[in-house]
Design a protein around this nucleic acid. Structure first.
Length: 223
DNA sequence: CATTGATCATAA
DNA sequence: TTATGATCAATG
């Protein structure tokens, strides 16, 4: 059972609304999928299930998930107190061939420009099959948010370009941060050192900090 | 106990 | 092999 991609934003939001309140077991059953016991060896399972349920069509491509609509889908794990549990992966950090890259041409901007946030119950006290989908909402950065995201991106990409990879830690950045993003500590990519030589280094990704996505969720709940 | 750094599965 | 989907688990 394959769901076709929604043709309009309204059609997408209608599907999101229909998902709200359903358990993961319920949705998985509709696709003849079994629910893993836990996420330890299936970390992306919930996100992939939501892609199926909503008809995301970007597959493994450098997205957005809904290509025709330019909308990126992100699940937002939330505990029983409405607290966002995890940071949100955005995209890989280009370690090479990034000279002259501008904010508005970056993958980060492309994905953050329009996001469908889909809160998912993720309290450890609730078993995976019993967890429910919350109320999804569309978000685009406002002027202030974009300015801060852009500053973060620029500061971090400047460090990448200057070969300061070893000095990049997850502590840098107000909303955005860079953290390792690989299969394990042995996966390596080519980057550039401070002296301009090509070096092997960990693959990294841009992530949105938990407190930032928490603020988005809080604002939505308030409205 | 929150965050950083490390890791798991899968598709193309 | 690299990018997608993320969460796990060590650390301070």
């Amino acid at each position: 059972m394959d769901i076709l991609p929604p043709k309009t934003k309204e059609a997408l939001l209608a599907r999101v609304e229909a998902l709200g309140g359903l358990t993961l077991a319920h949705i998985a059953k509709d696709f003849n999928l079994s629910v893993p016991a836990d996420l330890r060896q299936s970390k992306g399972w919930v996100g992939e299930l939501m892609e199926k349920a909503l008809g995301a069509d970007a597959g493994c491509l450098a997205k957005p998930d809904f290509r025709q609509l330019g909308i990126e889908l992100k699940t937002l794990p939330v505990d029983n107190n409405g607290r966002v549990i995890e940071s949100t992966y955005v995209s890989v950090v280009p370690l090479l061939n990034h000279w002259g890259l501008q904010w508005h041409q970056s993958e980060v901007y492309g994905k953050l420009a329009k996001i469908l946030w889909l809160p998912i119950e993720a309290d450890p006290a609730i078993s995976l099959p019993q967890r429910r989908v919350g109320c999804g909402f569309l978000w685009s950065p406002n002027t202030v948010q974009e300015a801060i995201l852009r500053q973060d991106w620029q500061e971090l990409m400047d460090m990448v370009a200057l070969g300061e990879l070893e000095q990049i830690s997850a502590k840098i950045g107000t909303y955005l941060q860079i953290r390792p993003k690989g299969a394990n500590g042995k996966s390596l990519r080519w980057g550039v050192s401070a002296s301009g030589e090509k070096i092997l280094t960990l693959p990294r990704g841009f992530y949105l900090r938990r407190l930032f996505t928490q603020s988005l969720l809080d604002k939505y709940q308030f409205l």
